[in-house]
């Protein structure tokens, strides 16, 4: 286990970079999430004390924006686009197929082995390639349920 000093060292330098400016809360949280991969509760409390704002305030912002996550995510992140264009090209069937493949029920997004997180996004702006799936930052266009499952199998190998 990391010592407390180690744990908060990175958030300290992030706070310093933004000169402890309250109005920079969103960029601070973005940088923090980049560093820790999610927003751990104790780090959020730390940020609120350092900026002299209430933890409720920080929590409010952290939960308002969908980009922030308060729970750890899986090693590989699959984001299925469910924007209008992808939706009319049947992105739902891809989501369903992936859920079954990864054994996720409706409320779960991350697999038990912490290998995969399945998310939907409202629009990636790659409507010309619909339906689109993003796996670890790489966009795959014109997907089908079977192609999506093949992607998972490839990673598992």
């Amino acid at each position: 286990m990391k010592s407390n000093y180690e744990k908060f060292k990175s958030v300290c330098s992030i706070l310093e970079k933004y000169s402890f400016d309250k109005s920079k809360l969103i960029p601070i949280l973005q940088a923090t999430q980049e560093e820790y991969k999610y927003l751990p509760q104790e780090v959020l409390t730390f940020i609120s004390s350092a900026l002299n704002i209430s933890p409720a305030n920080v929590y409010g912002v952290a939960t308002f924006y969908s980009h922030f996550s308060l729970i750890p995510k899986g090693k590989h992140i699959i984001r299925v686009c469910d924007g209008t264009a992808c939706h009319v090209k049947k992105s739902e069937s891809i989501i369903e197929a992936l859920r079954k493949k990864l054994n996720l029920n409706n409320s779960q997004t991350t697999t038990k082995d912490m290998l995969f997180t399945l998310e939907t996004v409202s629009c990636l702006g790659t409507c010309g390639l619909s339906p689109a799936v993003v796996l670890d930052g790489k966009v795959y266009g014109q997907m089908t349920p079977s192609k999506a499952i093949a992607l998972i199998d490839q990673i598992k190998e």
Binding site: S23, K24, Q30, G60, S122
Partner: peptide, 26 residues
């Protein structure tokens, strides 16, 4: 340049301003 954090409602001008100020984008 400020990067958003994933909230559709921030396209609304008063919400966007709140977001730049570091608040919930309402």
């Amino acid at each position: 340049v400020m990067e958003g954090a994933g909230a559709f409602v921030c396209g609304e001008e008063t919400a966007l301003i709140a977001s730049i100020e570091g608040k919930r984008g309402m």
